[in-house]
């Protein structure tokens, strides 16, 4: 076959270029460790999401020192949970699945980007250096409301990150002369123990309690106030710990035209 000399040179140059491209991408994969979305997770049928312990309650969980897992469900036209809160400078593995059609889970302005296919669980491990708020969008057309599918990813400083949960048990009505008892259950989702302050406000009174909760456990803290100190009538209360809070109203004395219906 008769090939012009210049064309031979061009072909050699083209081959060098092609091999060079393959080499740089291989370096990215092997040298820099940029792995691709893979098939490591088992398939999961959309109607089994409710029974799957990862996705039944979409959430962020600590799985090791500076290692977190975020279980996210995409569906027309929302992401759960929303917002998603993760710590900076930590390894976060996203597990994302779809309840209906094909979506994507894309953190705008970053290379956190994966297709979300019903029946499959996409996983990717990323680390955010910069605290801040990032937009999460679906960039695969998923139906008439596709352009409304949006979520938020909040990256907080590692020291400020907590997985504290608060539940408060309080009476609605108390007879004069008795005690108003508020029982706060503080749950610590982190693996390490947490030292924090529980603040209870009721009527004019403010009570602060130091709380230490072991990793992966919960503590019950009971505070009480004399109903007589509050006086008859309705009294608002709030309980706060970290970023969590709960509130309500307690009525002292018989309810005679309070706001309960």
């Amino acid at each position: 076959m008769n090939i012009h000399t210049y064309e031979r040179l061009w072909i050699v140059g083209a081959m060098v270029l092609i091999v060079g491209f393959i080499a740089t991408i291989t370096y990215g994969s092997v040298g820099l460790g940029i792995t691709m979305i893979d098939d490591e997770e088992e398939t999961l049928a959309p109607d089994e999401i409710g029974e799957d312990e990862r996705f039944a309650d979409p959430r962020v969980e600590q799985v090791g020192e500076d290692e977190y897992a975020a279980y996210v469900v995409a569906q027309t036209f929302v992401f759960q949970p929303d917002p998603i809160e993760i710590p900076a400078d930590s390894e976060v593995t996203f597990y994302v699945t779809s309840r209906d059609v094909i979506h994507s889970f894309t953190v705008v302005g970053t290379n956190t980007n994966t297709m979300v296919i019903p029946g499959e669980v996409a996983t990717m491990t990323v680390e955010f250096d910069e605290p801040g708020e990032y937009g999460v969008i679906c960039n695969e057309y998923c139906g008439a409301g596709h352009h409304d599918m949006e979520g938020e990813l909040t990256v907080v400083e590692a020291e400020e990150f907590d997985l504290t949960d608060l539940a408060v048990d309080a009476p609605d009505e108390v007879e004069p002369g008795e005690e108003v008892e508020l029982t706060a259950t503080v749950e610590n989702g982190l693996l390490e123990e947490v030292e924090t302050t529980l603040t209870v406000e009721i009527g004019e009174e403010t009570i602060e309690e130091e709380v230490v909760v072991e990793g992966g456990t919960s503590e019950e803290i009971t505070t009480s106030v004399d109903a007589d100190d509050l006086g008859e009538g309705d009294h608002d209360w709030t309980v706060e710990v970290d970023d969590e809070s709960d509130g309500g109203t307690v009525t002292v004395g018989t309810d005679d035209g309070g706001d309960e219906s």
């Binding site: 064309e7 061009w10 072909i11 083209a14 081959m15 270029l17 092609i18 491209f21 393959i22 991408i25 994969s29 792995t35 691709m36 979305i37 893979d38 098939d39 997770e41 398939t43 994507s104 980007n113 994966t114 297709m115 979300v116 296919i117 029946g119 499959e120 669980v121 996409a122 996983t123």
Partner: peptide, 27 residues
Amino acid sequence: YLDPGISEGFKFIAMTNTMFLLLPSLL
């Protein structure tokens, strides 16, 4: 490339084949 359910190895093979597909266009 960003689909779950397809392993990385197959994606790598597709990538190298794609790069060689540059050759006919460069020619």
